[in-house]
Design a protein around this nucleic acid. Structure first.
Length: 571
RNA sequence: GCGCCUGUAGCUCAGCUGGAUAGAGCAACGGACUUCUAAUCCGUAGGCCGCAGGUUCGAAUCCUGCCAGGCGCGCCA
């Protein structure tokens, strides 16, 4: 891979900076960062390197900038470099200096923006992990879409990403599920039952009960003792729910590399072994936890139990790994799970959790630090809650009441593309207000149509050109330096910045940047479209514009693909 | 009480890890279709960047303290 013009300029400046600092005792050399100025008058690139340097060299910034400019050897494509304001260096490129890049875009096609790096560490990306006790709701959907897009973005930038779904198929909620199904089965047999508040009320439970009764008759379960009956029903119900979840996921275009069952951790003895190891390492002691803060605890009775010294590794309080009845806590299984990932060779783990699990981060990280000695494992991304409204009226989602809105329902109403794109338009740290009616509306409020329209519009122009018998010139014969209008320059800059944007999105785990970028790119195109007619008499300029359009369409398509959104050629 | 997240235009949100005059969309107002898709574009108006201090050449961005909202805080998962 050759260095881009931006890299060459950066390098040229960096060399001078190192040179200047050679005589000065500096702890670290400030790095040169080229930015795109907002104002056009400030040139194509701006560098602020003179400012931090001024302090180290004990000169004023403008003076430093002058020294730098006197020494630097810029590449030929640089037209001029001027000092401005408090000490910025504004760099102006020769006309068309960068426009050849759009040829690269077409040559690279689907690969534009991607890097190949098969030597990179493997990354385990765990997301969604919704309990297999019911269908996924829209809140899960946000995590799902964010996780899948992040995986795509990171893969594009050379990470080896392994997508994993952790199935919480052990624990009390499975017992509740099994019992709920059993009650519905009895009900279906005409037996009079009372359905307690503690059971899952959703209609899908009835569906599962029906399914089970179709494959095995009622007498089979009736004859069993309660424990084994609930065990078998739990297994069947989990399988049914997971099938439903997988189908929901397929509907939004998400597939996992691996579904990992919590139950297998218990059955294989991994959880037990983990506790034994921690005991052997002297990380567990007998103690009593203080009462929880904040809320009134009615009948708090202090219990002496075996506690894991997570506070030694940054946690707020030590954590129990075993319940009073001797079974493992969810936490114990979760550590075993993360330890298992580590053993499978993943030194790098990313977990995407809902905001309601925020309090869980420090203890898992503390536990993994204790087990592996690594400091930053795992990385946890918290996705804030989704607030559902219908025409502005809050819509509660609750599995208990059974009135929750499923992801599947929303996808059916709104469409996969709209759901996926909309969920990506905000940073994960901000809560998402999702209005069902607004999301259903196919109007300008839905940004996905805006960007898809840009793509379709380009293809309309290309179709028109074809219909008029205009042959696309060979890429190498097109003179891109003819693209000098303001709108063209902006559009070129946008398509050029795609790889940088992707890199930032991957490094910072911020896939929403892709969505924001596409909207900006689409805006730059629409603006160009209105001011620059493509199919015109001037053959050379027309070919240049056609090339730019093709490059733009390619970038929109590539970027949308990362978000799992289609790029229609006609709308 | 403690921890995490958030607070930017009437509304929904960006703001490229400290840069130059804080930007979009929606809503409001005014323009642009006999010409490649008006699901679009152009313009006008709209801002104590929650509040108060601090750090420095420079702060929406970093630090501290408040205020407001969300989430969480026993052997639930």
């Amino acid at each position: 891979m050759t260095l881009s013009l931006k890299d060459l300029i950066t390098q040229a400046l960096q060399d001078v900076v190192s040179d200047l600092l050679a005589d000065v005792e500096a702890n670290k050399t400030p790095s040169v960062i080229l930015t795109r100025p907002k104002q056009k008058e400030h040139g194509d690139y701006a560098v602020n390197i003179a400012m931090p340097l001024a302090g180290l060299l004990k000169q004023n910034p403008r003076q430093v900038a002058e020294t730098i400019l006197a020494k630097v050897q810029f590449p030929d494509a640089v037209e001029s470099a001027d000092i401005a304001g408090p000490g910025f260096i504004n760099i102006k490129l020769k006309a068309g200096g960068e426009s050849d890049i759009i040829k690269d875009i077409l040559n690279q096609a689907e690969a534009y923006g991607c890097v190949d790096n098969s030597n990179s560490d493997r990354v385990n990306l765990e997301f969604i992990s919704a309990n297999p006790t019911g269908p996924m709701h829209v809140g899960h959907g946000r995590g799902a879409v964010v996780g899948d897009s992040l995986a795509n973005v990171m893969k594009a930038r050379g990470y080896q990403v392994h997508k994993e779904y952790y199935i919480n198929d052990a624990g009390t909620q499975i017992g509740v599920l099994a019992n709920s199904v059993w009650l519905r089965m009895q009900e279906l047999q005409g037996i009079d039952i009372t359905f307690p508040d503690s059971a899952y009320p959703g209609d899908y439970i009835i569906e599962i009960a029906k399914e089970i009764l179709e494959s095995k008759n009622f007498a089979h379960f009736e004859a069993m003792d309660e424990t084994s009956r609930l065990q078998e029903l739990g297994t069947l119900a989990v399988a049914a729910n997971m099938a439903m979840i997988r189908s929901d996921l397929k509907q939004v275009g998400i597939e996992f590399d691996q579904y990992f069952s919590e139950k297998t951790l218990h059955e294989s003895g991994k959880v037990k072994q983990l506790i034994e190891k921690l005991e052997a390492d002297g990380l567990i002691y007998t103690g009593t936890l203080p009462p929880p803060k904040g809320k009134e605890v009615k009948d708090y009775n202090p219990i002496e139990q075996r506690l894991f010294r997570t506070t030694d590794f940054g946690d707020d309080v030590d954590r129990p790994l075993m319940k009073q009845d001797g079974t493992a806590t969810y936490f114990a299984a979760d550590i075993a799970y993360h330890a298992d990932k580590f053993e499978r060779g993943f030194k790098h783990m990313i977990d995407i959790w809902g905001a309601d699990h925020g309090g869980y981060i420090t203890r898992v990280q503390a536990a993994m630090k204790a087990l592996t000695g690594l400091n930053t494992q795992p990385e946890v991304l918290l996705v804030q809650m989704v607030n559902l409204t219908r025409d502005g009226v809050p819509f509660k989602m609750s599995k208990r009441s059974g009135t929750f809105v499923t992801l599947s329902e929303v996808v059916e109403e709104v469409g996969k593309d709209a759901v996926r794109f909309n969920f990506m338009t905000r940073r994960i740290e901000s809560q998402f207000d999702f209005d069902l009616e607004a999301a259903k509306a196919k109007d300008a409020e839905n940004p996905v149509y805006y960007v898809q329209y840009a793509h379709a519009r380009i293809h309309a122009v290309l179709r028109k050109a074809e219909a008029e018998g205009i042959a696309l010139a060979d890429i190498n014969d097109v003179d891109t330096s003819l693209l000098t209008s303001d709108e063209a320059s902006k559009l070129i800059k946008m398509v050029m910045s795609y790889p940088d944007m992707l890199q930032t999105a991957a490094e910072r785990r911020e896939p929403y940047r892709v969505a924001t970028y596409i909207m900006q790119l689409a805006a730059a195109f629409h603006s160009f479209y209105h001011k620059n007619r493509v199919i015109i008499e001037d053959e050379a300029l027309m070919q240049a514009r056609l090339l730019l359009l093709r490059a733009t369409a390619q970038v929109i398509k590539n970027a949308l693909a990362l978000l799992g959104v289609s790029a229609p050629e006609a709308m």
